[in-house]
Design a protein around this nucleic acid. Structure first.
Lengths: 203, 203
DNA sequence: CTCTAATGAAACGGTACGTTTCGTTATTAA
DNA sequence: TTAATAACGAAACGTACCGTTTCATTAGAG
């Protein structure tokens, strides 16, 4: 598929990292994740597929979580939130483009599930995931700040809570393998978060 | 500690399941989870600690996820949802007693985190978790049905959505290791779900 | 020209997987 | 009473992956 698959054998290119090996390892990791899923993902499998030595992988990636995160980063596009004009529209787009939709069609969902799973066992992975998560949410809160700026909602609205609810819903569906089904109920979820699920008045 | 630890050796008691072995295996699984966490939890370790044969474990628990779920279920006290008189109060109690508060004591949360993590790797585990999850949610929706019955909310309110939002929030905090912090914001979350996070009117 | 460092291959000891065999035990059905 | 059935713990099986170590090879860096 890629040029690295054709190469007969890669050898050392001297006292420096071999970019071809790095690329071949990431390609192999990505291919395994796509074709066999999380279950088939092991350092040995990646090394076999990449025709690389295991020590080469361990030299550059301390554990499989870091390797998976590297695969994930290759897919991660620019994090921007196009302004649809309404808070509701922005949040729907957030779920559709950045979360559920992003996980559904791309390999990212599988990789992200693996990272979350790893974070339940490995303390380092947990810390890395929490930091990543906090940073992403901080950026997403700008959606709510934008709505405040145009007077759509009051300044006292808890933007962190709104984003937390959106992300929580997406995570839950991802981890239950229901991303496809969840995409059908995006608008209902956003409405529920904004105006309430119970049809009650706020005062 | 328990009586089963004193027994010199358990043998077959004939052509039927040995309750002593069943109890010893669950005790061992629970102890390992408490003392060594998820990382140390393996069928071999459980068998060693319980002085049981691996085939005995595999005979009654098809995989380690089902075994972990059995440990988890032992902690689940009566699956009742005491009626506080209001939907808000019931949902707060649901989060405080059945979800976050239940996980906070560390062991239950650890076990459930392990189950969720396993479900990301193992298809059988995923199915077992989804089934358990669906059953639990079905019971929890009774909280909302009760509110409908007393006329607190309209009959057209989506009870599944409300419970889904509550559970999603709890899962997210559990998986990020923020159960303790999340307990402080239970009331705000319930209010946000019931009357909306954005201070908007529903029509 | 020597030193240093990265490479793939192979093998290491260790652990856990899930299964099979075996001798033992005691309930159940004939 | 007897024979069939089935669960029990122990041990061993082959397989897989872990993370590390050795080795000959390669070529940049000093």
């Amino acid at each position: 598929m890629t040029a690295t698959d054709i190469d007969e054998a890669r050898r050392s290119i001297g006292a420096r990292r071999n970019p071809a090996s790095q690329e071949a390892i990431l390609d192999a990791a990505e291919a395994i994740m796509r074709e066999e899923g999380i279950a088939g993902f092991s350092i040995e499998a990646v090394a076999r597929r990449a025709r690389a030595g295991k020590p080469t992988i361990y030299r550059w990636w301390p554990n499989r979580t870091v390797l998976m995160l590297d695969v994930y980063r290759r897919f991660k596009n620019a994090t921007q939130f196009p302004d649809t004009g309404t808070l509701r529209g922005d949040l729907v787009a957030f779920l559709e483009n950045q979360l559920l939709g992003f996980w559904k069609d791309r390999l990212c969902g599988t990789v992200y599930r693996a990272v979350i799973a790893e974070a339940q066992t490995n303390a380092d992975a947990a810390e890395a995931l929490y930091a990543y998560q906090a940073e992403r949410k901080k950026v997403a809160v700008q959606i709510v700040d934008r709505a405040k700026a145009r007077g759509e909602i009051g300044a006292d609205v808890d933007g962190d809570l709104i984003i937390d609810m959106i992300v929580s819903f997406a995570w839950h569906q991802l981890l239950l393998g229901r991303v496809g089904e969840a995409m059908k109920s995006i608008e209902g979820v956003v409405d529920g978060i904004l105006i309430g699920c119970a049809g009650l008045r706020s005062s």
